[in-house]
Amino acid sequence: MPLSKFKKTLSDYSIAVLILLVLWEAASMWLNKSYLPGPYLSFLTFGQELGRKLGPHLLVSTGRVVISLVTALIPAVLLGMVLGRVEKYDRIAAPLIYLTYPVPKIIFLPLVVTLMGLGNLSKIFLIWIIVFFQILVTARDAARQVNKSMVDSVLSLGAGEMQIYRHVIFPSCLPKILTALRISLGTAIAVLFFSETVANLGGYGGIGYYVMEAWARLEWNVMFAGIIAMGIMGFVLYLFLDWLEKKICPWEFL
């Protein structure tokens, strides 16, 4: 990204941030209740807490999200592409996917926690199945839509099946996969928050745990520091995916 464009993006974001802060401040002044502290106090607490307990909590949560995204992404993309391309596998898998896809996976939380305990594994797994299905369905549909003439013309150059995946199917699905990933990021963070609040081992249990603790102690500004941390985590990951798409799919942005 050229510097001038970067500056423009930065100023656009600054304006948006300013608007949000003003609204927040206005709401806080108007309500005038301890449970809605203003942005100044919240960010001040955020700054202080980051060096203390909040930092490790943030790290734990970010780690969980990133690990589940990455480990779900790879098998989902591979399997999705194969299902989208090979009719006979898809005929077996499609009914399974259609039956299970609409079920909100969070409903398995009690079961998953019982099986995998209160630690990292249960949370990573919950996010994993959500992201996995989302990406699987996206990759499959995208692979089905790949233009047949495009495949044929590459086949006529002598390409084998692997080369078709590499040169045609994968790049053709990639933008849709990244879009799906950005959308499932929101769901992933929501599920993470929820599972961290209801099932944890104490200690550094992640931002969800941190926020619930602060709430229980009625430390509102600390709670808001946690909310800010989660917001920033989502924003940074979102920006990263956005950047990644521009980086690896340059043809989409001509």
Binding site: S153, V154, S156, G158, V168
Partner: peptide
Amino acid sequence: TALILQDYGLLPWKTAQENTSLGLEIR
């Protein structure tokens, strides 16, 4: 044997040079 189709012969994610190279790369 070389096959040239009306559209879709080129891959949108490859530059002109990469598209031209594709056959040799595959080989």
